[in-house]
Design a protein around this nucleic acid. Structure first.
Lengths: 95, 95
DNA sequence: CGTGTAAGGAATTCTGACACG
DNA sequence: CGTGTAAGGAATTCTGACACG
């Protein structure tokens, strides 16, 4: 089972270590609606799925892809997945 | 794969919420050598496996089992598992 | 023995802003 | 646009100790 993968329990400092992204970058991607952490009394909590998604974001950014485009592709992927009736954990974890 | 289960990334406050144990109790069980968190710059980090093991400890404590006995049983279990050549993640995660 | 609490310090996180580009 | 940084405050965590039992 993958409940571990989607449980939001990791604080931003650890996510930063795990992804190599700065806290500033991670918060910015949230502002741009690419990532959706939970809030535990004010502080952001991320899942392992979030961490993996952030690494993907980092790779796309390195390729020069803008956050707006990443968001557009993400939405499109979600739309397709929903159309197939496959609203699975892969996307649930990002919303 | 269960790398998520054994990666130590959760801070004590979240572990406290997840287990229902107080931070004081969690630190005490560490002092009694029942649990072995990693340290990320001074602060303790736990895995989901640690969280599950803490819940087991909590159950035993409610039954009146002392930490010393829990530790003894834990060691015995580990010894048996090692004898069978089954040093698997179940125990690796606690050491 | 196991756990609560007050104490003081250190490290973390948060937000809004200015900077550069 | 994307990210760094300094700023001030709030919340977290740490340790060692005293308390009770």
């Amino acid at each position: 089972m993958d409940s571990y993968k989607h449980k939001k329990v990791i604080s931003i400092g650890i996510v930063s270590e795990l992804t190599g992204l700065s806290p500033r970058q991670i918060r910015y991607y949230e502002e741009r609606q690419l990532i959706f952490p939970d809030r535990s009394k004010g502080t952001r909590k991320y899942s392992f799925a979030d961490v993996e998604w952030l690494v993907e974001i980092a790779n796309k950014r390195e390729e020069g892809v803008q956050t707006k485009e990443i968001r557009y592709e993400m939405m499109k992927e979600i739309r397709e997945t929903m159309r197939k009736g496959q609203i699975n954990a892969h996307f649930r974890s990002r919303m």
